[in-house]
Amino acid sequence: MKRFIGILGVIASTTAIAAPVAAQSTLQDVIAKAGAEGAVAINVSTTRFPLEAGPNLSAALSKEFGVDIKVELINNSPVPVMAGQIVEETRAGVTPSFDLFPLPLAFTKAIDAGGAIERIDWKGIGVDPEFIDPAGNAVWIDTVPRAVFYNTNLLKGEDIPTKLEDLLDPKYKGKIAGPGFGDAYAMVSVPVLGEEKAAEWMKSLYNDQGLTVIRAISDIPNRVANGEFEIGIGIPANRTGLVDKGAPIANAPLESVGGQPYYIFVVKNAPHPNAGALLSYFFCCTAAGKKALFDDMAWAKFDYEGSEQNAVGGNGRGKVPTPEWQLAEQDRVGAAFDAIIGR
């Protein structure tokens, strides 16, 4: 697959992988060691958050566990670049510049093969096994709805789509924009339609409906809001804050919505591994952590009430594939969809 060529090249050249660190056995062990470390950094790739997000998360984490830990959100290169970099750093024995990396499981598979994930006893510190990936590497903290949204000035009433198949109506031909990577369309459609029907839907959307592919997914809401397109695909309408600013876009009330789960893991040789494990547990498994994660980063799962994720996919409408499918099949399906859009 194109997106993993760089990562897999690095993995192939890795000759030695350090033994995993001793796993922590209890949450109290992690709290004590995290307090001694005093800081934790999350790589958020190219996503930008308000300056107060880090201090707010620090305050919430410290209040919950009684330890002072500075939380820093680090902007860096795009995900494929950073995924390859941390494997290179592990091979070279270089201390990484961050402790935590939230990613889809399809990416963690290649990073794990490169020995760049720290082994944490997630179950031992209290993480529900339901939220631990099958390899035991990472913890599920967020779901990005692969939503459909529309320009509220251009579409009204019965013209607003309510299911994915509606997008194949000829009246939308040439009026739909979507991202430039097949993975997004896979997660839009496969959890809802199944692989076979999703592939046919994707072919028709691109070949018959004249889907416009836009490289940066964050640009799509802007171009729907300005009336260039009637419909956008791939992220919720307010993911970049446009709805809050009064932009004329809204999420389509789909009967079922696919979602991309994001899992967070501690990077091998991280300078603050215990603080990383504690923050991951905080986000995943405490009410205060879920609230802080949403309030300061707008990250949540479909079941978090008051979130856009819940508004889009609550009451069972949000669908995500199994972790096993994400690890074993998502790469293959994403590559097939890449081929359809000529990527």
Rank of each mutant, 00 (worst) to 15 (best):
237 A>Y: 00
277 A>I: 01
204 S>R: 15
198 A>N: 02
250 A>G: 11
221 P>F: 03
176 I>F: 01
164 L>T: 12
167 L>I: 08
223 R>W: 06
215 R>I: 03
264 I>G: 10
209 Q>A: 09
219 D>N: 15
212 T>S: 13
176 I>P: 04
174 G>Y: 03
218 S>V: 12
154 L>V: 04
171 K>D: 06
191 P>A: 09
267 V>S: 09
147 A>S: 13
190 V>K: 10
216 A>W: 09
192 V>T: 11
218 S>K: 14
178 G>E: 01
214 I>Y: 05
147 A>V: 03
147 A>L: 05
227 G>I: 08
238 N>I: 07
159 D>Q: 13
183 D>V: 12
155 L>F: 10
175 K>Y: 02
206 Y>P: 00
195 E>I: 07
249 I>F: 01
190 V>G: 05
223 R>E: 12
149 F>K: 01
189 S>L: 04
206 Y>H: 14
170 P>Q: 08
236 P>C: 12
190 V>W: 00
226 N>M: 00
165 E>F: 09
171 K>E: 04
263 Y>P: 02
156 K>G: 09
277 A>K: 02
197 K>Q: 13
213 V>M: 00
189 S>I: 05
246 G>T: 09
163 K>G: 05
153 N>G: 08
211 L>G: 05
222 N>F: 12
281 Y>W: 08
205 L>Q: 06
230 E>P: 00
185 Y>W: 14
247 A>K: 01
155 L>K: 09
251 N>S: 13
222 N>V: 02
192 V>E: 07
261 P>H: 10
173 K>C: 01
255 E>T: 15
163 K>N: 14
254 L>M: 13
181 F>G: 12
270 A>C: 13
177 A>L: 02
162 T>V: 14
191 P>L: 10
226 N>G: 01
177 A>Q: 02
236 P>W: 06
253 P>S: 08
202 M>F: 14
241 G>I: 08
259 G>N: 03
254 L>K: 02
